[in-house]
Amino acid sequence: MATSAFIPANTFLHRLDARSKLIALLTILAIAMILDHPVYILGLLGIVLFSWLAARLPLNFLGNIFKYFSGIALLIFCIQLFFYPGEIYLLHLSRPIPLIGFSGYISLEGVLYGLALILRLIVILTIAPLLVMTTPLSELMLALVKFKIPYRFAFILTTAMSLLPSIQNRAELIQQAQLCRGVADFEQGNLILRLRASASLLIPLILGAFRDSQTLEVAISSRAFGAPVQRTYLLETHLRPVDYSLIMASGLLLLFSLWIRWG
């Protein structure tokens, strides 16, 4: 299992400050939720895909996303296709079936809204990787701190990440030990067996990890954690004009979409 999704490269997106990228991400997320016409969301998706290409991120990840979520996308689309109470009929299928709320027609509005929802799903799925894969973890954390997220929370995030390898290691050891004793693994067996396997993993895993907590607690506080001063950072980041432009553009785009929806 990976401990970081970051893909090092030197592109425009990689050079941007994590703060401006985070703001842009949240803006696109908000707009994807505000607007519900497929054309607008398609435009949004265009921005995301263009950035994806510009950052030279692997395209097969995109393929995986589409493959993995094609099921839910189809489901979301079909529900709107058949059950959206539209007025402009495109296709007559059958007599109305009130029991399942089907009018007998497929409407234009239904098709459009279904498409909008699928596009929204794709935007939501592709936007987070765009940030995570172009920003090193330390910069991301620094961005959170600069946004006045309590340092303690940023500390919990980074520290948990750095503890991951040892906890995963422990989990694998326990799983191997349980396999030797004939407890089923997660890949095989029926539901009950699989869940029994999760019990025989989680209990020793949690207890073992908690046993180490005291050393960690002593180590953290012995190194002046929580000193009553404003913490400084070895790493420094600065917003450049291009970052300010991105933040401005995000703000304008948000205002524009609010105006489209309710203006």
Binding site: L137, S138, T158, T159, M161, S162, L163, S166, D212, T215, L216, V218, A219, I220, R223, A224, F225, G226, A227, V229, R231, T232, Y233, L234, L235
Partner: peptide, 19 residues
């Protein structure tokens, strides 16, 4: 279990940053 940062550099700097 007394090391809890992502890199050696941030590990060693941790105390001074806190101060």
């Amino acid at each position: 279990s007394q090391l809890f940062n992502v890199t050696v550099l941030s590990e060693v700097a941790f105390g001074c940053e806190n101060l």
